[in-house]
Amino acid sequence: MLELTETWYLVLASLIFTIGAVGLLVRRNPLVMFMCVELMLNATTLTFVTFSKALNDVGGQASVFFVLVVAAAEVVVGLGIIVAILRRQDNADADDLSLMRG
């Protein structure tokens, strides 16, 4: 039986991160893209907690705490923007929102 080391957690985290990243790059629905961002964030928090345990330092957990807060704020604002846009322009997806084009 293999021993369960921190590397397992980290590989799992990188898998989740990759799935999230590919999803972000492929999907066009802004809501789903947001969820993919959440996936990537969670993968990152998982590595933080893993390293906190591996290196015996509570700082990793503190970082996760802040990531959580920022993610909550980000979701609130991001969803607010999406609602505001879709209320005006029905059926828009991420590629339609290109007003910042140079």
């Binding site: 021993e3 080391t5 921190e6 590397t7 980290l10 590989v11 990188s14 898998l15 991160f17 990759t18 799935i19 990243a21 590919v22 790059l25 893993t50 390293f51 906190s52 345990k53 591996a54 290196l55 015996n56 330092d57 509570v58 700082g59």
Partner: peptide
């Protein structure tokens, strides 16, 4: 890009051995 990220990070993780390495905590130990 996804495959590259995955492959490279897993390579990085596995090349150092079975466990993660790094500087252990000095002042805020669990």
């Amino acid at each position: 890009v996804g495959v590259a990220i995955l492959g490279l990070s897993v390579t990085a993780l596995l090349s150092v051995g079975a466990s993660a390495t790094g500087q252990a905590s000095a002042n805020r130990a669990l």
